[in-house]
Amino acid sequence: MAEVRVPLQALKGRGTATRFPHRFAPDAREGFDDGWDAEEGEDAAGPPRTEVIWENARSLITSNDSPDIHFGKSINPYRGCEHGCIYCYARPTHSYLNLSPGLDFETKIIAKRNAVDLLRLELARKSYRPELIAIGTATDCYQPVERELRLTRQVIEVLQECDHPFALVTKSSGVERDIDLIAPMAAKGLAAVYVTITTLDADLARKLEPRAAAPHRRLRILKTLADQGIPCGVSLAPQIPFLNDDMEQVLEAAWEAGAREAFYHVLRLPWEVAPLFRTWLQTHYPQRADRVMHRIQEMRGGKDYDSDFATRMKGSGTWAELVGQRFRKAAARHGFNRKKVEFPTHLFRPPAPAGQGTLF
């Protein structure tokens, strides 16, 4: 694939400036400025705006049996994510919607209109067996559109009504809005929150995750949650060679803020994420782009990505082993992961069907 150069001024707070064609597209098209549509110095197109597309989903709770994923059920109220993280492994899912994994993934957000009704229906089934539900595993459940749509809050309200255990992962301060729901659940051992902190370098974070909270703000989220008695953890994902090389500093800061669990993954570049990330590297770090990609390929058996369950999260080879050793030593030094959070299921009670009240 030909290299695409993107001028920095074209990004306008987004992870990518292009509607990169998805793998099912029969052809690829590019915009061309012929100079007729705008006066000199005028930006005719303007910054790309976010569009919410409502969807009536067929199901809400997703099950998985992947041996390298430590939860069996998950909920994602949204598809696509306005945070615009260039490394997001969920970008290729927009391809199934005939949308671009590039700019469309960041600007066309699919919201599940019937999320609450579906959740009630699924939890009320006689065959349902409760276990931990992870919220926001593919795209951030507290991305900016949640402020108005409140789908995540509605989901948590149903889980609270049922005393159903859940954990969520986010980069957003929006989670603080729902402390009134999460803290009482945490007091019963039914809730935990994990905050992703990729790096403490604010400039790098702004490029990697252009619309997510700044690193110092995420540390404050951890402290706020921990002060409310909510079990907290920190995700150091993804680890990218020669870019975010401050794992030890992140762990130290997260521990001081109140996190007591920690985990990491190395960079994953499935499908269209690989060329998107290459373009991002050439745009922001052209001097080290080749070096970064060579080390990534070293972890993946010479390829951009390998989906093998045994290695896709941690990679393989010398660099991957070094990252693992650094994480284990730093985590042990601070005391991370000494006590595993247990989520009881015996308190669960099925919800009342939507629109149906109690007899008394």
Rank of each mutant, 00 (worst) to 15 (best):
S100I: 06
S100N: 08
S100H: 08
S100M: 08
S100R: 07
S100V: 06
S100G: 08
P101H: 11
P101R: 11
G102A: 13
G102F: 13
L103A: 05
L103V: 08
L103T: 04
D104N: 09
D104R: 08
D104Y: 10
F105V: 08
F105H: 11
F105W: 09
F105A: 15
F105N: 10
E106V: 04
E106S: 06
E106M: 05
E106C: 05
E106I: 04
T107Q: 12
T107E: 11
K108H: 11
K108V: 06
K108A: 03
K108M: 08
I109W: 07
I109N: 02
I109E: 01
I110G: 10
I110R: 02
A111E: 11
A111G: 11
A111H: 11
A111M: 12
K112R: 09
R113G: 00
R113D: 05
R113V: 05
N114R: 03
A115K: 02
A115W: 01
V116H: 04
D117A: 15
D117T: 12
D117N: 14
D117S: 15
D117P: 06
L118S: 07
L118K: 03
L118R: 02
L118Q: 04
L119W: 04
L119C: 04
L119T: 01
R120I: 01
L121S: 14
L121F: 12
L121Y: 13
L121C: 09
E122V: 08
E122H: 08
E122L: 10
L123K: 00
L123W: 01
L123N: 00
L123Y: 00
L123T: 02
A124D: 06
A124L: 05
A124N: 07
A124C: 07
R125C: 05
R125Q: 13
K126C: 09
K126S: 14
K126A: 14
S127F: 04
S127P: 08
Y128L: 09
Y128I: 07
Y128A: 06
Y128V: 07
R129C: 09
R129G: 08
R129N: 10
R129T: 12
P130D: 01
P130K: 01
P130G: 02
P130I: 00
P130L: 02
P130R: 00
E131G: 08
E131D: 15
E131S: 15
E131A: 13
E131N: 11
E131L: 09
L132T: 04
L132P: 00
I133Y: 02
I133Q: 01
I133C: 01
I133H: 00
I133R: 02
I133V: 10
I133S: 00
A134W: 01
A134Y: 05
A134L: 10
A134H: 12
A134D: 07
I135A: 07
I135G: 04
I135W: 03
I135P: 02
G136M: 10
G136N: 11
G136R: 03
T137Y: 12
T137R: 11
T137E: 13
T137N: 14
A138W: 14
A138F: 14
A138H: 13
A138I: 15
T139H: 12
T139L: 13
T139W: 10
D140T: 13
D140R: 15
D140C: 13
D140N: 14
C141I: 12
C141G: 14
C141E: 09
C141D: 10
C141M: 14
Y142C: 10
Y142L: 13
